[in-house]
Nucleic acid binder design. Sequence first.
DNA 1: AATGAATGAGTTTTCATTCAT
DNA 2: GATGAATGAAAACTCATTCAT
Lengths: 215, 215, 215, 215
Amino acid sequence: MVIEVETKREVQSSVKDESLIAKRRIQMIRGAVSLFKQKGFHRTTTREIAKEAGFSIGTLYEYIRTKEDVLYLVCDSIYEEVQERLSTLPAQAGTIDGLESAIRHYYLLIDEMQDEFVVMYQESKSLPKDALQYVLNKELGMVAIFEEIIENCRLSGDLHIAQEDVKLAAHHVVVQGQMWAFRRWGLHKDMTIDEFISVQTRFLLQGIQKNGGTV
Amino acid sequence: MVIEVETKREVQSSVKDESLIAKRRIQMIRGAVSLFKQKGFHRTTTREIAKEAGFSIGTLYEYIRTKEDVLYLVCDSIYEEVQERLSTLPAQAGTIDGLESAIRHYYLLIDEMQDEFVVMYQESKSLPKDALQYVLNKELGMVAIFEEIIENCRLSGDLHIAQEDVKLAAHHVVVQGQMWAFRRWGLHKDMTIDEFISVQTRFLLQGIQKNGGTV
Amino acid sequence: MVIEVETKREVQSSVKDESLIAKRRIQMIRGAVSLFKQKGFHRTTTREIAKEAGFSIGTLYEYIRTKEDVLYLVCDSIYEEVQERLSTLPAQAGTIDGLESAIRHYYLLIDEMQDEFVVMYQESKSLPKDALQYVLNKELGMVAIFEEIIENCRLSGDLHIAQEDVKLAAHHVVVQGQMWAFRRWGLHKDMTIDEFISVQTRFLLQGIQKNGGTV
Amino acid sequence: MVIEVETKREVQSSVKDESLIAKRRIQMIRGAVSLFKQKGFHRTTTREIAKEAGFSIGTLYEYIRTKEDVLYLVCDSIYEEVQERLSTLPAQAGTIDGLESAIRHYYLLIDEMQDEFVVMYQESKSLPKDALQYVLNKELGMVAIFEEIIENCRLSGDLHIAQEDVKLAAHHVVVQGQMWAFRRWGLHKDMTIDEFISVQTRFLLQGIQKNGGTV
DNA sequence: AATGAATGAGTTTTCATTCAT
DNA sequence: GATGAATGAAAACTCATTCAT
């Protein structure tokens, strides 16, 4: 299954040197995430972003065109990193072990990038229409990854699940991951990420199983 | 189990007549929800809120002190309504049927109040510290309701679940409900609220069951 | 002949009291003309306009929406005044005396409102498309006034002029008037407005006469 | 009559090679005229000028010191060209034919260089004091050319005109020329440049004639 | 109680100019 | 001589909040 993603939105820059653009944008994104985390997108000023990134306001605007571009770059870079890191998964296609491993990797990733995830989910609504669409597509891409893995388990017979429940199960996995990022205030005092992973996996695998036997 | 809620924040008003305050605030909240839904808290101006509510900007400020007060009133009124409506549940304490009924009621409620829920979750981060705390406590109150129901099922023996998993299960219920409000773009085209309720309930009850037997 | 002018462009104001709008706009226009005169439209800031008008920047923007609105109001008010003052002319239709009187009034008016005229002609190019169109139409309206007067003289037989030259003659009158405003640096040291009027009138009346006799 | 022109303003350049300076400035002026024509001086950025000229912003500033220098160079080059082209006129001094020929040449020139003329008249007000003075002097130089021609006709007896009207007549010629450039929107649909020249000449020669007889 | 005009701090964005390479 | 990245002062415009009526 090929995960097709909308054509990438280009953020215009008046600087030509591509490697410089990449470097400056990394600075910019790092600074922006840190600020958005603290105060949210709207309460953060472009001047603050520039300062945090280590250059002047004028320079900031050499690399973007609007403040919303910064938000887009932040969201995009997060998905980029997530997808890159998930793509290295050993694709033990069609086995429960493979599914468990994917979930584990995904949740560990979220745990590491909690701030980024929270920022992205909280603020992406402020993106302009087209950018928002692009980001939602990336999100669907995430769901699709798990959809595929689960579907393979179903086909291989490792997992007893109705075909029509596969999509929901995939959403389930993704949303539970978000829950870990979003509900730290409610969850982290009661369990570690490892406990969370193990309980979630158990929940999922049991919950998922099609009611076939004696249960 | 006692659900302890932070002392309610009072929103100051320079008007004395309490029933007038109540009336104006209802107008205000209705208008604000509708606007926040469309444009978010930050993109909505106080002038717009006043207009939508049907009075002047001057009058608006007779009933609140800051724009954030409006957001607080919105969030508070949503929880108020949710709790009021959940409190009417027949408390078939300790039975699976009671749990299922509670979940059903909760999810139907969310389906009805989708916009309000989304607004609240998206914007509550913009509340000032103390108001945010109050709202988070309300949220914990929601979780506690389900925690209590599940715990009762556990105690009655209707549900095989480890005690340490009860809290997570309660979070689970609440978060899955939010998922329905938040992920319309990904879910509603694939299922109805009734299907969602039934699948979620099955997932939950199976997932929850302590691994005891043959499964 | 009816001089039809494009529908007036409305400048939006968030203030409701019409008489207050009128009053504030007069202050604003007065201040703006004085500043545009000194530094031109682009070099004048909105803050300066507000200050010169005697109120704050915020108040300025209660009465306009963009800086260009100020320029439009300036241009519009000038034409308004010119047309009002020209409309009081005794309409000695069809006589040379009537034409001379009209020219005299027009040129005296320009002499009085030199600054306004210069501002208008120098800056109107900065108006947005539709506003520019409206102003150009007003200008054509000015030309049309003289076109009508001259045509009447032609019809009455008081003036020997080819029909096809009437329009040019009218432009001529108007442009010569502008010349007085624009070329002060070249003209005012050499003649008074009265001398200018008398010479221009003579020029025009002689130049205009259809080549009929011995000249 | 000697036409005295203010000392030419030097525009500083950090480049030494004079022929290179000349070449770059031609590129620059060509680009700038084209841009000023479309958007005016203030709405044109130095970056755009550099780009249109075919080199980088850094290079632009090797050949000028401020943006206003560009405007000055533009205005100066226009007058330079006009004067050069008028200087080739056969100086049939003192004859009506010579005057007519000069007018014809001048108006044809304006017709050809309409854009340049409009730019110059619209934007020269943005020049710094001293540069503006220099340009106004150039303009007076233009007037002086016609003043001299007319005066010669007067002296030769070919033209009956009061001495004190000579200067105004010269302004007249120049201003009518500007009218052709400025009022295209009002004039060009009604006549060709040839018709314009012929009517203007007739107007002028008749209007100019001193009131000697019965007329 | 209700109104809405007034305020000005604060925000995004632009752009002439410089200077290290 | 040429380049273009960096700078930051300055500009237009917004909007929460106040207060006289």
